[in-house]
Each structure stands twice: as C-alpha cells, then as structure tokens.
Design a protein around this nucleic acid. Structure first.
Lengths: 348, 348
DNA sequence: GTCGCAATTTGAAAGCTTTCAAATTATAAA
DNA sequence: TTTATAATTTGAAAGCTTTCAAATTGCGAC
C-alpha cells in the first residue's frame, strides 16, 4: 500500500507538531519524544508518529526549539573578509566539521571593521548561536564577557584571550623562511611585514629575524617595511625596498597577497625574479603556485585550521570545561621557483 | 551625570524585555513599541526605556522575534563550494547588500551534493529564513514548492525555475571568446566545455560555436571535450585535445580553474603558451592574471552577481509580487597574454 | 469642575517547542 | 480478580517577543 505524499504538505503554512500529534492521534509530548528520542514510546505509536511526519512533511521549527532550549544549532563564524583567498579554506574546514555534527554555519564578514565585527558578534548572541568562531579583525574590540556562548579564536588570537585558540606556527614558519633564504646564500634581505599590532605578523617577523641572526645576518631598520596584508601593501613596500642601496637580493613577504604585490613591483622595476631578486612568501596558497615564477613559501594549513577550531568549539558546546587550549598547527616550506641560489662572494 | 554600565550587564543569563520593562517601570508592550517604533510613546517613557536598554545591555532575542513574526532576518545562501575561487566574490556581494539592510547571511556549502543541498534547503526553512539565494549544485533536486520563502537563483538557473534569477551572459561571453580566437587567426581549436547538464556550460559552448560558425570554422566532435569545472577536468581534457592531429592552435576553457589545469597540461606536453598553443578562458578571476602567461578570458562580474541577486531577493522579502525577473549581467573580454596572433597561411 | 475624544499605555494571547509532574495503561505477582 | 509496580502517555507551563483590543490618561471645551 504505497503511501503518497499528503496534499496538505503542499499547502500554505508550515506543518507543526500539533498537526502531527493530531494525525497520529497522540499527544504533543509523545511526538516530541519520538523526534528527540527522549523517552521510549510504544512501537506502534512511534510508527504512527513517524508516518505522520513523513506524510505531512514535517520539519521542526528551529526557532521554537532554540527558544525553548536556549540555544540553537547555529555556529557563528566571524571573518575579516571572505574575499581574502586564505579564508575560504578555513571556512570550508569549519563548515565540514559543523555539518557533520548537525550544526549550521552563519558566516559574518566583518570587513576588517571593528564596529561591524562587534555588531555581528551581538547578532550571533541574539540568535543564540551555540558557539562562535572568530578570526579577529585588525583592531578588534571584542571583549571577553562572562555570559557568552563558547568561542574559539582562529588564526589570530584576540587581545587578552584566555579561551581556546587554533593558530599556525607563525614564528616557526618565519624561521623556516629565513633559514631557506640564508641557506640559499642571501644576506641582503628586505622584509615586507604585516601590521605590527597583529600577533601573527609579529611572530612571522620574529622567527624570520631569528633565522637571520643565526646566520649572522643583521638588517638595518629600513629593510623592514610594515604594510597591510594585501596586494597594495606588498606592492608599495616592495617598491621602497627595491630602491634601497644596496638593493636586497631577496624579499620576504608575510603573506601571499603581499607576495603577489611584490612580484608586480619587481616586474615594474624591470627586475627579474628570481634571477635578480628572490622572493619567499607566507601562505603558499594555490594561487602562488601559478604565478610567474611560482612563489616559494611557507604553507599554512587553512582547512585544518578551520576543522580543528570547529572541533574545539564543539567540545565546548558539548560542555567540556577545561582551561583554554592553544593548538598550534605546523607550517612547512614549499620550495617552488622564486628563490635563486646566490653564489657566495669571497668578500670581507 | 555620567551613566555607567550596570553590573547586571555582565551577569549570567541574557537580558530580556521583561527586565527592561521592570526597570523602566513600563509595560512589555511599551518596550516593544519603543524598540520597533510601532507606536508613539511619550518622550519621557521612551527615554526611560532607552536608558534601561542601554544600562542593561539588552539585545532582542531573535528567536522569539522570529517565532512571533514567523520569519527571521536571516538570508540563506546555498552554494556549491566556497573553495571555488569564483564564489567568494559572489558571497561577498550578497553579504554586503544583506548587511546594509540588517539581514544576516547563513552560508551553506552544498559541496555539489544534491542531498546536502536539499538538507540545507530544509534547514533554511526550519530557521524561517526570510529568503534564500541559491547557486544550484550540479544535479540539484530542489523543487519549486508553493509554501516557500522567496528564493532567487544565482549564476545558474534551477531546472524549471519560474522565479527571479540573476545570471551572466554566458552565450555572449562564449561568443566573445570565439570571436577573439578567430580574429586572432585561429582555426584549429579545442574546447574544454563544462558539464553539459549545466545551462551555463551549454550556453558558453553554444556562443563559442556560433562565433566559430560565423568565421567559417567547423569542429569535429573530438575537439570538444566535456569535463567538470575544475582543475583536474581542465588538465585531462587539455591532454586529450593536445594529442589530437592536427593539434589545436588554441584552447577554450569554460572556466578559469579548467584553464589553470589546461596550462599545466600544456607545460606537461612541453609546449609553450601562447607561442605554440593559445588559451582563452571564462571567469577572468584575479588568479589567472598571475599565471604564466596571464590568461586572456571572459570576465564575469561575481560581486555584481551576488549584490544584484541580493537586491532582487530583498524586493521579494519586502513583498514585491511580480512575475519572475531574469537579470543577465554582461560579460567582457579581458585581453591578457595567452592568445597569440596566428599568421594566416595561404592554404587551401 | 465635568465631559468627550484623542493619545498613550497596558496585559494577555499567540507563535512552536521541550520538559516535567501527574495521570494512565500495561504487566506481573498474589 | 486484585494489587503493586513499572512503563507509557499526557497536558500544561515556560521560553521571549509582537500585537491588539481594552483600559487609562491627558487635554481642550463647556
């Protein structure tokens, strides 16, 4: 006896539990128990309920549910800008782990604007998000409050943040980059660093300088340019560096977007990369594999970052009560074509 | 008399309208009227309410609100994969227009899986999303139902879709690409087309072929390879095409990702682009500007696409009742470096 | 000072779930 | 057949808002 979809499924308003209860001839409570498996219900009744749900095409109203439970199955994610090619992979990682656990993602593009970020943060709380994942914007003003859903910092740590965070081994990565450059014989090096008020920018720089130090290379301050993590920042900083005397034989860009800008600057200066100027970068996204030349850089596991952060967050959502955990993911040197070996002169 | 934030703002549970009402010594209704401006309330009372809200740090519970109003300020957006570099710009466009109008974005990554897509679709309805924006997945099974929040199709039209949609002039774009190639003297051309069950892939191909036809060029079927819109698809198709005799002097890839794959294939075949094989693509994302060589292609306005779709959707959310609108955004040829001019032989 | 009308203000109901104490039914023992 | 106990089932309350009819207040006119 094939059961065909009931007409009422097509009709106007949404189906509610009441209708299920009536059709299955049971009480509201029973329907709820069947749906949530919060009590054993007699096989026969259960079947009636299941059938009714199927027939009427019932989907629970998540708002009522959230209202009653005082939280939803929404995970909020605040990021600076989805248009930055590093972030989609992170988002994807979050989305995957969230979906697997029946959580849904509310994506918030803070646009590097602290006000917008704060607005989103409040919205997320207004929607009773189960948890929040945040890649803090540049001058984030989000402050830790007591009454808050669980939150995990991703990629960058919020100022004074005591909770969970997942970041990337920025200092190690910077070190790897510095080491590679010095091992390839470079001594005159220009650095395009990220905004100094961003922890990861500072870490990358520190690691890089440490490697230089170990190789006995020291840099005067004009060889370190600070800029935004974007293409324009990379371009203008590279321009300044390339005009210095002596001209650096290699550039370190603290992000791929910057490296791309730097590459344009090198071209615009009629220099060849890597023959005349080498370039090493941070991120090692797919896009820098396609440039001319492919840019050697430090790989950051974006997807992993998101996935791991999602896991930590879900732990908290499930009630885990532990001191804050900091997970630091390893970075890795990806040698491509933008760093040339420098012949060591018999100088000094 | 500076008013300092009340301690209770920090305390445990969320602040509710009741507390505001009590503190301002007015009724619930009045608070609501102040917040929503649904009635004029005496200046003094209003001030008391505003102060209470400020003092207690009240933010309306969006769930109760949505429950009562039978819809939320959530816009759902279903996309195949945020990791596809064409989509972030679209999402960003949507996000911008949504935010401006106080709507928030729920991002759903269908992963090109019709089942996941359908699940998300239902979730969105369960959350009483005000509207849905969908870039349909490959074999989408979403069917038009009567009782549904407003929905707008983006980039691709859903099978049998009668509502609003915003797409790109795919056929025109294909035509532009074909015309450019023939004008540059190419006659022996290989095509890497998208999945034939996707309307935009079909349109691009048709437009392209039309241009060839006008130039008196005809292609035997093995010169048209169908593949997924991704890198791997581009690579393998290009490989097959490059092994054909006579070898095509130019390739048309129906997406940038494919073009990147094709570029790898050209390199792997020890051929030079554009000297031996020209390449033209569809999308003209930033990334294909950085490849070696920069890929000439047809530009699609991704951000515009999202922004426009968002606008159409909000019209509907606001109750606009009109037959479905199809907005088609113009495409544009971006000449870069991957197409060479072929000297016309005095053949035939 | 009183009346009538307009302008405010109020409080209860509704929206859809989940939960919990209470009520009902089934089962086993006597 | 009773009775006691365990297993199900029930219905009302609560969660927080908006809305609407009803109640109250304010004000000008008489």
């Amino acid at each position: 006896m094939s059961r065909k979809r009931d007409i009422s499924a097509e009709a106007g308003a949404r189906v509610t539990m009441h209708q299920i209860a009536k059709r299955a001839n049971v009480s509201l409570g029973t329907v709820s128990h069947v749906i949530n498996e919060t009590a054993t219900v007699r096989k026969e009744l259960k079947q009636r309920v299941v059938d009714a749900i199927e027939d009427l095409g019932y989907h629970p109203n998540q708002l009522s549910r959230g209202l009653r439970l005082n939280k939803t199955s929404l995970i909020g994610m605040i990021i600076p800008d989805i248009t930055n090619p590093f972030f989609p992979a992170v988002v994807r990682g979050v989305e995957d782990i969230a979906y697997k656990n029946s959580y849904r993602l509310m994506l918030c593009n803070a646009d590097n604007d602290p006000a917008k970020e704060a607005a989103y943060f409040n919205d997320l709380r207004s929607f009773l998000a189960a948890g929040i994942l945040i890649i803090p914007s540049l001058n984030s003003t989000i402050a830790w409050k007591h009454a808050m859903p669980p939150m995990v910092c991703v990629d960058r740590r919020l100022k004074g943040w005591k909770g969970d965070s997942v970041t990337v081994a920025n200092a190690d990565g910077g070190y790897l980059a510095g080491k590679h450059l010095t091992e390839m014989g470079h001594r005159q090096i220009g650095i395009i660093s990220g905004p100094s008020n961003l922890a990861n920018a500072g870490d990358r720089l520190a690691g890089f300088l440490k490697a230089l130090g170990e190789a006995g290379v020291s840099l005067s301050s004009e060889y370190v340019q600070e800029a935004q993590f974007d293409r324009a920042g990379g371009y203008s900083s590279a321009m300044r560096l390339l005009n210095l005397l002596p001209r650096p034989t290699a550039l370190f860009a603290a992000s791929d977007l910057m490296a791309i800008g730097a590459l344009s600057a090198i071209r615009a200066s009629k220099l060849r990369c890597p023959d005349e100027v080498s370039l090493i970068s941070f991120d090692a996204l797919d896009i820098t594999e396609l440039t001319d030349p492919a840019v050697t850089g430090i790989f950051q596991p974006g997807y992993q970052l998101g996935y791991t952060a999602g896991k930590l967050l879900l732990d908290r959502v499930d009630g885990l009560d532990l001191p804050g955990r900091d997970i630091v993911l390893k970075t890795e040197l990806k040698v491509r074509d933008s760093v040339s070996r420098l012949l060591v002169m018999a100088d000094k």
